[in-house]
């Protein structure tokens, strides 16, 4: 089973940015009624993501693409997605050495000889909002400014958020921050402006190895279904019971 995103996109036949049908959809969306968009019905979808840890090369393309697509502040403490670099010593498996310089935005240049550290295992882990089905962040929002959309994406209404920051505290994965420009909470939208038009997210579009793949868990023909069948996947912090929908293949137990 291979993941051919290009084929997937072509098959859906809805990606042509400038096509007539898309522009009709666009107008419907601008009017604030996405349900009337001719080619997107929210209740037909339930979005998630599959991440193949073995394929991540730590190039940081997803981080850069995310910031560019979504106008995320470039400071090193605001990320909708970031990459962590793990070094696990077999003598102390529970306490890995983790680094994420600038969230991986500039990649992870390695200083020293590539074979200089043979006594440890090394890997990268991309992180993003898990778009939890039972999300603790939306649970605590006092006013209804953050919510799970009918298609399973955890979103923020930036015109309604009062920045009490309770959601930032409630996220077990550290996926939320306060955007210093708007003074509202901010997080991954799963590129909602893209996926509602049949495109994939900026991070998946720009992952050179296909380590990250957007998937529609309601679509039986989506390749993610087969991926979940073929691999032993796990979500982050399963003990939190958040209903996370970002599935990691071959994730090391030391990752939190």
């Amino acid at each position: 089973m291979t993941f051919d995103r290009r084929k997937f996109l072509l098959d859906t036949g809805k990606l042509l940015v400038l096509s007539a049908s898309a522009s009709v959809a666009w107008e419907a969306i601008v009017a604030g009624k996405p349900e009337t968009a001719p080619n997107y019905t929210m209740t037909d979808h339930w979005w998630g993501m599959a991440i193949d840890v073995d394929k991540c090369i730590g190039c940081g393309s997803c981080v850069r693409a995310c910031k560019a697509e979504n106008n995320v502040p470039l400071d090193p403490m605001y990320f909708r997605t970031w990459v962590e670099q793990y070094r696990v010593n077999p003598d102390d498996m529970d306490h890995p050495t983790v680094e994420s310089p600038n969230g991986g935005y500039d990649g992870f240049p390695f200083k020293g000889a590539p074979d200089s550290d043979p006594k440890a295992k090394h890997f990268f882990v991309p992180k993003l909002c898990n778009h939890c089905a039972d999300s603790p962040c939306t649970q605590v929002c006092p006013v209804g400014a953050t919510f799970i959309s009918p298609d399973g994406v955890v979103l923020i209404d930036k015109d309604y958020c009062l920045a009490c920051r309770y959601c930032v505290q409630a996220c077990p994965y550290g996926c939320r921050f306060i955007d210093p420009r708007t003074m509202t909470a901010d997080k991954c939208t799963l590129c909602y402006q893209r996926i509602t038009k049949g495109l994939t997210t900026a991070c998946c579009e720009n992952c050179p190895t296909g380590a990250r793949r957007l998937g529609d868990l309601k679509n039986p023909n989506d390749p993610i279904q087969q991926f979940l069948l073929d691999h032993h996947v796990v979500v982050l912090k399963p003990q939190m019971a958040t209903g996370a929908k970002v599935y990691y293949n071959d994730l090391d137990g030391s990752v939190r």
């Binding site: 929002c141 209804g144 400014a145 309604y160 009062l162 003074m183 509202t184």
Partner: peptide, 21 residues
């Protein structure tokens, strides 16, 4: 609050699952 002027929303649309509401 980042947006003190919106605090009235706590009264207008209190979210029943939020302790803060």
């Amino acid at each position: 609050l980042g947006h003190p002027e919106r605090s009235i929303e706590m009264y207008l649309t209190p979210h029943t699952t939020s302790a803060m509401a």
